[in-house]
Nucleic acid binder design. Structure first.
Lengths: 189, 189
DNA sequence: TAGAAACGATACAGATCAGTATCGTTTTGA
DNA sequence: TCAAAACGATACTGATCTGTATCGTTTCTA
């Protein structure tokens, strides 16, 4: 492995293990064993485990939001359809055999203090996801794009939570139907 | 403390600490320090930490569902109002200064293997919560009580997830408005 | 009221945790 | 090409983890 790739490889390995076992349950020793990178090397890239978690969440945040944007833009051009297509993106995610719930919710659930940097990273990700929904709602000319975004957001969080427990993709389709019904009553200009 | 109360006291202490710090982050040493019970005594009541977690979740499950039932029955007599009043119960919960998200979602998030007894305890709790919604939907004479229950359930999970991050009670009111709108279109007999 | 059982206190075992120190080897970049 | 830096391997530290062993004291119960 080229040295320039090591940091990325560590983050990818860490994200995979965090998704599989959670944050506290994933030890540094496991991450180095699975990645094949020496412990000293890991600690040269990340000062502490918390720094590694924060960097992993940052990477996931960027990737998730970019992937959703790309999916939505490819899937539909009509602004209203674009909003609803975010649920199709969700469905694909739930169908992934590695799906074990939202990593940011899991991070917040293991770092519950609102002053904890890990909690704040999760909070920031959710804020940015909401902002994207608002952007889509604005493009669809809703009178109250904030309210539309809030509702889409709540439906997506609900679908993700239900899917995490049921390990099923059905909640994504259900949430899409609910969103369709709710959006139909919202005023546009 | 009377000996018959020790087990309850241990469970209450454990539940408080699990809610505050999560499951992995809460050590046995902290539980005995906070409860004032000797470690040998704790291990006489619970063979392992996992047994303690399972017993705590069982206790929480019973208490949560009983409290919701009592709240709903006191709050409304009309079956439709009873369904909507579950969101008022949610709002009260979110307003609690100790609210840090759903302990069952946190448990599942830290024990992601679907064969893990802790995951299965969380799964069972969610199944029973859904069954209660279906019971309420049936009493309200909906043609498809299962579908109503699924939608109420998804809205409650979404509200809880959003409230966990935002530490706000607003998602409960928002979800209630959404439920009201959605339910209005559902056929009854 | 007497014996059994539960209790508190404490020390301990053995594993695992995050993080560091050392050192020989490999890669990078000027 | 050569020196600096990064790397792998490994041993280590000190803290913390779950769980156990020991033992004197208290409480329950028959």
């Amino acid at each position: 492995m080229r040295r320039s790739e090591i940091k990325d490889h560590l983050l990818e390995t860490a994200l995979r293990l965090f998704n599989e076992h959670g944050y506290h349950a994933t030890g540094i020793d496991l991450i180095i064993a699975e990645s094949g990178v020496a412990k000293t090397t890991l600690y040269r890239h990340f000062e502490t485990k918390e720094d590694l978690i924060l960097a992993a969440l940052e990477r996931r945040d960027q990737a998730d939001r970019r992937e959703m944007r790309e999916f939505v833009e490819k899937r539909a051009t009509d602004p209203l359809e674009r909003i609803l297509s975010t649920f199709d993106f969700l469905e694909l995610w739930f169908k992934d055999k590695e799906f074990r719930g939202c990593g940011f919710m899991a991070a917040a659930g293991e770092h519950k203090d609102i002053a904890d940097p890990v909690f704040r990273a999760a909070e920031m990700h959710k804020r940015l996801a909401l902002a994207y929904f608002e952007e889509l709602a604005h493009a669809a000319r809703f009178r109250d794009p904030r309210r539309v975004a809030d509702e889409i957001n709540l439906l997506q969080e609900g679908a993700t939570a239900v899917a995490e427990i049921a390990r099923s993709a059905e909640p994504a389709r259900q949430a899409k139907r609910m969103a369709t019904s709710l959006i139909a009553t919202m005023e546009r200009y």
